[in-house]
Every structure is written in structure tokens, then in C-alpha cells.
């Protein structure tokens, strides 16, 4: 007959392994979604850029052909729109960096989940009650170390929350 400690250990092993598997499968799906988002964004920006530069080229040609008919105010308005479009198109660079960070964080979390899988990290050579206690303590230490490492690797550098142009500073 199983003792209470045996039953707790058995349940903990099952729970930690199952939890690790479930979270890992969802994180894997999330990684796939982010990769797919990056692909779509990348293709969208290539199409947008192609159209944008095409329009700009056509406008420049028409402007040269009918220079006398395009007034300065009209040209200024075109330039202003052009500049705003260039600022706006930079969303791709910013969002791509953020998506890469999200994926790197998912990878880090999946690495941590391996530690939580008791079946894979179980310490042997002790009696059963001691085993689980040692393994959990070791898992806790490893998780803390991995979390710190991940945080250091992914220290937040991109703080932009809008698409207004950034500061300029000459040293």
C-alpha cells in the first residue's frame, strides 16, 4: 500500500511533467504564430515599399515633365506626405525587433520548462522523500538562474510607444 508521501510524490511528478508538456506545446504554437506574423509583415512591407517608391518615381517624372504647372505649395505638400510615409513605414523595423524579442522569450521559457519536468531532472541516489525535495530545490535554483540570464539577454532597449520621430543629439 502506498504511503501519503508516495502518493504526493507520484502526483507531483505527473503534474509537473504534464504542466511542462502542456505549456511547451502552447509556447511552440505561439512561436509559430509569431514567425508567421513576421513573414506576413515582411511581405507586406516589401509590397508597400515597392508601391511607395514606384509612386514617388512616377511623381518625380511627372513633375519634371510638367515643371511649370506644379507650384511650390503642391510640391511641399507632396514632400510632407512622402516624409510622413517614410516615418510610418519604419513600423516594420520596430515591430520586427519586438517580435524577435517575443520569440526569444518564448524560447527561454521553453528552456525553463525542461527544468520543471520532474521525470527529466529527478535526482537519484537518495530515498524517495529526499529525492523530490532535492530535485525541487535544484529546479528552483536552475529556474532562477535561467530567468536572470534571459532577462539580461533581453534587456528592453526598444521603448517607443508611438511612431513620432525620435530625438537627435550631436555630441
Amino acid at each position: 500500500m502506498k504511503t501519503m508521501d508516495d502518493r504526493i510524490e507520484s502526483a507531483t511528478v505527473v503534474l509537473l511533467s504534464k504542466l511542462s508538456d502542456i505549456i511547451d506545446s502552447h509556447l511552440l504554437e505561439a512561436v509559430d504564430d509569431v514567425c508567421q506574423t513576421r513573414l506576413i509583415l515582411n511581405e507586406a512591407i516589401i509590397k508597400l515599399e515597392r508601391s511607395f517608391y514606384g509612386i514617388q518615381d512616377e511623381l518625380a517624372k511627372q513633375h519634371r515633365l510638367a515643371e511649370a504647372t506644379v507650384n511650390d505649395a503642391g510640391q511641399d505638400r507632396l514632400t510632407a506626405h512622402l516624409h510622413q510615409a517614410i516615418i510610418g513605414l519604419q513600423f516594420h523595423d520596430l515591430t520586427d525587433q519586438l517580435l524577435q524579442r517575443v520569440n526569444a522569450r518564448f524560447d527561454g521559457l521553453r528552456e525553463m520548462l525542461v527544468v520543471m519536468d520532474y521525470k527529466k531532472t529527478m535526482v537519484s541516489g537518495h530515498d524517495q522523500a529526499e529525492d523530490i525535495s532535492i530535485s525541487l530545490r535544484k529546479a528552483d535554483e536552475t529556474l532562477t538562474a535561467l530567468s536572470v540570464k534571459l532577462q539580461l539577454t533581453l534587456s528592453k532597449s526598444l521603448r517607443q510607444e508611438h511612431m513620432g520621430s525620435g530625438d537627435v543629439e550631436l555630441f
Binding site: 512622402l82 516624409h83 517614410i86 516615418i87 519604419q90 513600423f91 523595423d93 520596430l94 517607443q160 511612431m163 513620432g164 520621430s165 525620435g166 530625438d167 537627435v168 543629439e169 550631436l170 555630441f171
Partner: peptide, 14 residues
């Protein structure tokens, strides 16, 4: 020894 620092997104005029 950089000469200056511009934060993205950049404004073409600036």
C-alpha cells in the same frame, strides 16, 4: 567616439 545619436523612427528632414 560617435559623432551623434539619432533615435528611430527617423524624420527624413531632420
Amino acid at each position: 567616439k560617435a559623432t551623434g545619436w539619432l533615435v528611430k523612427p527617423f524624420d527624413p528632414e531632420k
